[in-house]
Design a protein around this nucleic acid. Structure first.
Lengths: 338, 338
DNA sequence: CGACTTTGAGATAGCGCTACCTTATTAATC
DNA sequence: GATTAATAAGGTAGCGCTATCTCAAAGTCG
């Protein structure tokens, strides 16, 4: 048994820790991984030795030997949206302290890119994957299934055997917005959506259904696949005013669009909320400072990240959560704009 | 020589590729890594075999054997700031197609957290590191130096032997803002800064120096270490108006603060730019849509990421760039607010 | 109380690659 | 034409860990 520092990094190896603790290498390995079958007294000796040598395990060696890394892949459709940043941060706050490394994959709302990322990152043998929603290519889904890596889905809910997900009902949120606008006496409603991912469409559906339930004609829809931006919000608002000048309530699929619309309204002298009520989505920082302060749906994005990460940890321990579809709800923040 | 699929992933191994190509494993390895000493004809055979088997190298094995991974660590002070997201995206656009994996470390503007991230990620033996600015703990700097990993510094410039950096002069940008406000006839200037990192202070210095050069008294400063936010911008603006009601020009250290101030001004009826000129920094998306449209300094954050990544790649090839401090400049976007 | 299980520790053998050394082949030099 | 130098391929031996098997010691039961 050799016990010398690592060739490359010059850092101590497990063999050195074992030698110092006076145990075999494999016992040291087990002790450091907190595997039950090691005597507590020996385990303490090993931990002391590791601390004294400032031992840090070599992740590559660990991954090669065990065929599973300690990294967790998180796939999000965008980083430019503050929404996912907060989710990511919450995930990291849970996983990093427990010794997991978080790999971030941004697929820019593109299925082919997501597929490519999955293909690439699977070669790193992640021990778990966090995914956004359920809408992905057949191939991507098959890759995930074949890999046999535990997955947790975020943002959307689905009651299905073997699927663990954390989110809220996008439909219910859309419905809530419709009910709010109706309660304000608005009757000529519109929906403005961009970057039409599954969740935007679900919100739209919930919104329209609530309007239908109230016995009103469907909301006019302006939808574009372009990426959302403040600027686009202004453009779509102008288009809406031109096509349907008597609109009195608008649900924007996200706050960025609503911000842009608000600026245009200020500029054109369109009175919000007197002439038109405006509601956004996500309650991004800044929504409460807008002029007028923007009504928006606060989504539990940080909490979703936190619970998704925790659920994944449970799965890694072999536990099966009793609640497989965790609904964290949402909150309509009513402000001046409606 | 065994040539069977990987135990864990079931995926083909290098041995299989070699067998199929009728060469030794090491030759296959060299061919796939494009090492010159292999016959072009053999190399083609190897590449064909790899393609036929859909071979993907095992990064853990590669890292363990070569004591160097194919991952590049990028350390940024925040993800919540759109600025760094754009830089990150540009970095990934350069590095991912070349087979490098990008590891993102967010240290939340905290030196101790940066140090911890460096310590942690060095165990993954990254082949290069991209850092933000030069301001870090002694320990962090020593860790980096000892690791012997090529580094490129972003956002700030420093002419120093052996340091490769890509950015722009924060001082010059600050000075440019001062000159612009002075050219608009503003004489009672202020500087409002939050999240006081080195770059904010450099902008402030440049701003004050330009004011001094014009023979005017220094700008009044409101500075707070709190994280920047739209809301904070409004608060600091109100504080400034109370303490120095005759201020006629404000340089906000970033756009978020300027946004918040603009909203407060609208709400209070403070006329921008008639009563006070306002200038932001970074020219975030939305600055051009604000009411009034915000004058801001457009920073080359995407280009910085792109060039920093390219420079790092050069260093990895053993090349030494002739320009070690690449100044990408900036552009003052003059709009309605000034 | 002897056969059986349980438990904790160690020895061994890789994981899938690449560094390094060695050998075979060809080119270059006097 | 013998010696040296350059070049290209292969053999071998790990990288630093963990899975798996083995074995001794201690507990359990009818």
């Amino acid at each position: 048994m050799k016990d010398r520092p690592s060739r490359a990094t010059g850092r101590p190896t497990l063999a050195q820790v074992a030698a110092r603790a006076g145990v075999s290498q494999i016992t040291a390995s087990r002790a450091l991984r907190s595997i039950a079958t090691v005597d507590p007294q020996l385990a303490t000796r090993v931990h002391d030795a590791a601390k004294a040598l400032a031992y840090v395990p070599n992740p590559a060696a660990r991954t090669l030997a065990s065929a599973r890394s300690h990294s967790i892949l998180v796939l999000v459709p965008a980083l430019s949206n503050h929404l996912f940043i907060e989710t990511l941060e919450a995930i990291q706050d849970v996983l990093r302290p427990r010794g997991f490394e978080v790999l971030i994959g941004n697929y820019h709302y593109r299925q082919d890119e997501e597929e490519e990322l999955i293909r690439n990152y699977l070669s790193h043998q992640p021990c778990g994957i966090l995914l956004t929603g359920f809408n992905r290519s057949e191939t991507a889904a098959r890759l995930l299934a074949n890999a046999g890596v535990p997955c947790v889905y975020m943002m959307e809910l689905r009651q299905e055997e073997g699927i663990v997900c954390v989110g809220f009902s996008q439909e219910a949120a859309g419905a809530k917005v419709a009910e709010h606008l109706l309660s304000r006496g608005r009757r000529k409603l519109a929906f403005v959506g961009a970057q039409l991912d599954a969740r935007v469409l679900q919100r739209r559906d919930g919104y329209q259904q609530a309007i239908a339930r109230a016995g009103l004609p469907p909301a006019f829809e302006i939808m574009t696949p372009e990426p959302s931006s403040v600027e686009l919000g202004g453009d779509l608002f102008n288009r809406l005013l031109k096509e349907h000048p008597n609109t009195d309530g608008i649900f924007f699929c996200n706050d960025d669009l609503a911000f842009g619309a608000s600026f245009e309204a200020l500029r054109k002298g369109v009175a919000i909320p007197e002439q038109i009520s405006v509601v956004g989505f996500n309650d991004l920082p800044g929504a409460g400072q807008m002029v007028p302060r923007l009504t928006s749906v606060r989504t539990p994005r940080a909490t979703i990240g936190q619970h998704a990460a925790s659920s994944l940890l449970s799965l890694l321990c072999g536990e099966t959560p009793e609640v497989t579809a965790l609904d964290l709800g949402f909150k309509l923040m009513v402000r001046e704009s409606s």
